[in-house]
Amino acid sequence: MNVQETDREHLAAFLLAMRSQGGVEARLMEAVEAVPRRLFLPDIKGNVYTAESFPLPCGETIGSAELAWRCVMAMRIQPDSRILEIGTGSGYTTALLARMGARVTTLDRYKTLSKLAAQRMTTLGIENVTVLTEDGSLGWAEGGPYDRVIVHGVFEKLPKAFSDQMASHATLLCAIGPERGAQRLIRHEKAGSRFEEEVVGTVWWVPLKAGLAARL
């Protein structure tokens, strides 16, 4: 059995596991099926849908496929959602977001990762994504306000800069907690000048680094 056939089997099993969780909307299932994870992990051998993280260039990592779809599901994306993503990484979650929303602006401080992610969007024919090599530690006000924001990083508390870039009734997903150890993955729902918070999981993310990478 070749890699393509094996990947199809692993994807089928993964989709079955997703369906067994209940409450996963059909649009998200279709997005996961339409975005081949192998494209984002070309050098990884074996099952790319396992519940583990994988290394990326520039010393970064990509979380599990399950974490990706759970993050997307938690954001409750609508077809007209304007989305900001901080921490493009491989671009896998970016592609899922693009399949779900109207427009995605995604930032990464590493030009290597941004370039590879942009190439993958082109390969998949995804045109509703803008990939930027920028410092996203304080968001990206130029494209705001946003309906949905996801930050692949942890804060001690949510920076005001992000809340200022969110539209009314917008949703932001990020980790809150210590730099090391387990953190709460929290969905922040903006309601006027205040936030309603809901813990949707546990993650082990790292703080965002400010500035652009000097070399990579």
Rank of each mutant, 00 (worst) to 15 (best):
P57Y: 10
D43A: 03
I62G: 00
A34E: 08
L41Q: 06
V24D: 01
F14L: 05
L41H: 02
V72A: 12
M73V: 01
L67E: 15
F40M: 02
A17F: 01
I62A: 08
L16M: 12
R37D: 01
T50E: 12
A26H: 12
M75N: 03
L39I: 06
A26C: 02
C71A: 14
A65R: 07
W69L: 09
A26I: 13
Y49P: 00
R27F: 00
A65P: 10
L28W: 07
R76K: 14
F14M: 03
E30S: 11
V24E: 05
V35W: 05
L41M: 07
S64P: 04
S53A: 13
R37H: 04
P57K: 03
A51H: 09
L56S: 07
G46S: 08
V35S: 02
A65T: 03
G22T: 11
E33L: 05
P57Q: 09
P36C: 08
V35F: 05
N47C: 10
P42T: 13
F40R: 01
R70G: 01
M75D: 02
L67H: 12
G59I: 03
P57V: 08
R37I: 04
M18A: 12
G59L: 04
I62N: 01
P36T: 07
A51R: 10
E60Y: 07
R27E: 09
F40E: 01
S64Q: 10
S20A: 15
V32I: 12
R37P: 00
V72C: 07
G23H: 14
M75K: 06
R19I: 02
E52P: 00
S64V: 13
R37Y: 01
M18Y: 11
A34R: 14
T61H: 09
P36E: 09
L56D: 07
Q21S: 10
P42K: 08
R38D: 00
V72H: 11
F54G: 00
T61L: 03
W69R: 11
A51I: 06
A68C: 15
A74F: 09
G63R: 11
E66D: 06
M75I: 11
E33V: 01
E66A: 13
Y49D: 02
G22D: 08
G59Q: 05
C71N: 15
M18K: 08
L67C: 07
S64I: 12
R19Y: 01
W69V: 06
G46C: 09
E25S: 10
G22M: 07
R70V: 02
R19A: 13
N47G: 08
V24Y: 01
R27S: 12
M75Y: 06
A74G: 12
G59C: 04
A31T: 04
C58N: 09
F14Q: 09
S64R: 13
L39S: 03
C58Y: 08
A51Y: 02
L41I: 02
L39D: 04
R38H: 04
R19Q: 14
R38A: 04
V35H: 04
E52G: 08
G59S: 04
L39N: 02
D43Q: 09
A26E: 15
C58E: 12
P55K: 11
L56M: 10
M75Q: 10
V48S: 03
P42F: 13
S20L: 13
M29I: 15
A74N: 11
A68H: 15
V48M: 05
V35R: 03
E25W: 13
